[in-house]
Structure formats: C-alpha cells, structure tokens
Simulated assay, not measured.
Amino acid sequence: MRIALIRHPAPLIAPGICYGRLDVGVDPSAEQQIGGLAADPRLHGATRVWTSPARRCRGLAEAVALALSVPLTVDPRLQELDFGEWEGRPWDTIARADLDRWAASPLHFRSPGGESGVQLIDRVGDVQAELSRHRQDCVIVSHGGPLRVLAALLLGKPVDLLAAAPPMGSVSIVTRSVA
C-alpha cells in the first residue's frame, strides 16, 4: 500500500495567528503550487484522494482527484487539531503558562473548548485503520498535525506531537506492506 501525504499550501492568514480548525483558504502567492502538486508523478497509481474539509486542503484535493480521475473522499477526521478559544488569536496573546502546559503535556492538554493530542491521535488512528482495511494506494491531503500522526501510525512508530510538521505544499510517500 502506497500513500502520498500532502500538506496544504500556505494559508491566507497573517503570521503568528493560531488557525488549527479555522477555515482559511490558500494564500494567492501559493496557489500556483496546486497545479504542480496535482501533476506530481509520485501520485500516479492512487485509486482515491482523501482530504480534510478545510478550504486550504479541499481545493488541492479536488485538483489531485481530477488529475488522477479518481474519487474524492472528504473526511472531517483529517482536520487539524481544534484549538477551541485560541482559534484566530495571535499566539502572543495566549497566556505563556497555558502554552507551557501544552508543551509539557501535548497528549493530554486541551486549550479551552479545544481537543487534546490524544483525541487527534484517536481520530487519525481511525483513518489509518480504514486505510489499512481498504489496502489501496491513495493520496491524503491534510494538515501538519494529522499528517505527522498518520505517518507515524502507518510506519508503526511512536507519535511525537512536538516533532516538526511536514513543510506546507510538500508531498511525502509512505509505503506499507499488507498481508
């Protein structure tokens, strides 16, 4: 099973703003990436494209599905971590003590009204289980958090929520043998 993981291009939002679930589009300066990503030869052979419903992912996923002539599945389990009341706020206005608590316990900390790292891992784990049942080559278009989790789960590695996310507009390939 070969899975192409694509992180959305740069979003249309000011630097320094928290935007996990905030539904923002792609920055116009990054829109030209969409055609190049959709035409990436590493995507050939995929039988389905899965995407987060966020605009910054969905437009790219639609272009990839069209280029490959395969079905598109919009799946809310591929959304970014929900930062709750932090969404849309500048990071520098969030209490340092709260950010420190999150860094000290990324699995269990929840911003007010948001979700924990465990919840993110659980919902992305459900996607991974479904992909394993289907056993088909596919493309996943999502966000840094879910892609970092999905890659680790597919490779049988521990999930590190503090590891660097893949670069925006990048493609990485994960190959997993199936019995």
Rank of each mutant, 00 (worst) to 15 (best):
I121C: 03
P166L: 03
V49F: 12
I6F: 08
S170I: 06
Q79L: 15
L78E: 05
L150T: 12
P167V: 10
V174M: 12
R7A: 01
F109R: 00
D82I: 08
A54N: 04
P112V: 10
V26E: 04
G144T: 04
L161R: 11
P112S: 06
V124D: 02
D137C: 08
C57W: 02
H44F: 14
D23Q: 01
A39L: 14
P90T: 14
G145Q: 02
R56I: 00
V24Y: 00
P90N: 07
M168D: 14
D160L: 07
A163D: 10
E85W: 04
Q136D: 11
P106E: 09
A61K: 00
A46P: 02
P53I: 03
D160G: 11
S111M: 03
T73V: 12
V139F: 01
A151M: 02
L153D: 02
I173G: 00
G20K: 07
A4Y: 10
W50A: 11
Q33E: 13
A179P: 15
V74E: 11
R101G: 05
P112M: 01
L37Q: 09
D75A: 07
A103I: 14
R123M: 08
T51L: 03
P167A: 15
T175F: 04
P112N: 02
M1V: 04
A151S: 15
G113A: 04
G117I: 00
R96D: 13
R89K: 10
T73E: 12
